[in-house]
């Protein structure tokens, strides 16, 4: 398996604070890579650097061999890297299905001119059908026409996923997807993420909750104080002394 996303020497300083320091890792085609670490480890910063929300101080991020660091978020999305938000960010004025269709924005071929002339209806219908399938896939089938403001928090998270999938990504970035979900919702979420990987879409999962992440991820990168302290298979990472130290405090490691 070749590397789809390569992160090399990624560094981010906020004034005197180094949030991410010389980070290296890669996400391979079709795999679920988990990035874990305690609060303040630099997970969210790493996420925002890859997604284009923050500008990096140094380093290189390549997607499918092309450099993407420094590109605006919408250009990164257009390359095939979609994301979800930890705090759901729906488009409140639209029904569920239209929210998902916004995710497909970069996949529309019709020009404004052909829209005005009414020649884009076939494409619109086709995309709408595809969006309906994705709504079904995440389990919101009955709510396709519903107002997004009526969704529960957990349903909102599922909408985030359907919306990201609509962009036909090769890689999805999940920002703490299990945060705020019930145990049942977490189980359902894990099943959906496995389903996404089964569609040979690579997954980068930033997650605080080890119990959610370890059974799900194919490989895990552990961060602490902005640096990588361990990586490997979930089973290896679980018993790694530095990880136990970071998560449970220095007493537990000895």
């Amino acid at each position: 398996m070749s590397a789809l996303l390569e992160v090399r020497g990624l560094t981010k300083r906020f004034g005197g604070l180094t949030a991410v320091h010389d980070l290296d890792f890669e996400v391979r085609e079709g795999e679920i890579l988990g990035v874990i670490g305690p609060n303040g480890a630099g997970k969210s910063t790493t996420f925002n650097l890859i997604a284009g929300t923050y500008a990096a101080t140094a380093g290189d991020v390549r997607f499918a061999g092309e450099p993407i660091l420094g590109l605006a978020p919408h250009r990164i999305a257009a390359r095939g890297v979609m994301r979800t938000f930890q705090h759901n960010r729906p488009f409140a004025g639209m029904p569920v299905i239209d929210n998902v269709l916004v995710g497909a924005h970069t996949r529309f071929g019709a020009t404004l001119w052909s829209v005005v002339l009414g020649r884009s209806r076939a494409e619109e219908a086709r995309r709408r059908e595809r969006a309906a399938e994705l709504v079904q896939f995440v389990g919101l089938g009955e709510l396709a026409r519903a107002d997004v403001t009526t969704l529960s928090f957990g349903q909102g998270r599922l909408l985030e996923i359907a919306r990201a999938l609509a962009g036909e990504p090769r890689l999805i970035l999940f920002d703490e997807p299990a945060a705020g979900l019930t145990a049942a919702e977490c189980a359902r979420l894990a099943e959906i993420i496995r389903g996404i990987a089964a569609r040979s879409i690579a997954v980068l999962l930033i997650e605080h909750d080890m119990h959610f992440l370890l059974p799900l991820a194919h490989r895990v990168v552990v961060l602490n104080f902005g640096a990588k302290i361990a990586d490997g298979l979930p089973a290896e990472v679980r018993t790694h002394p530095a990880v136990m130290d970071a998560y449970l405090g220095s007493h537990a490691a000895h």
Partner: peptide, 11 residues
Amino acid sequence: DNPEAAAAMGV
């Protein structure tokens, strides 16, 4: 509704 989310969707 949400410019940041719109940008993340490729808008």
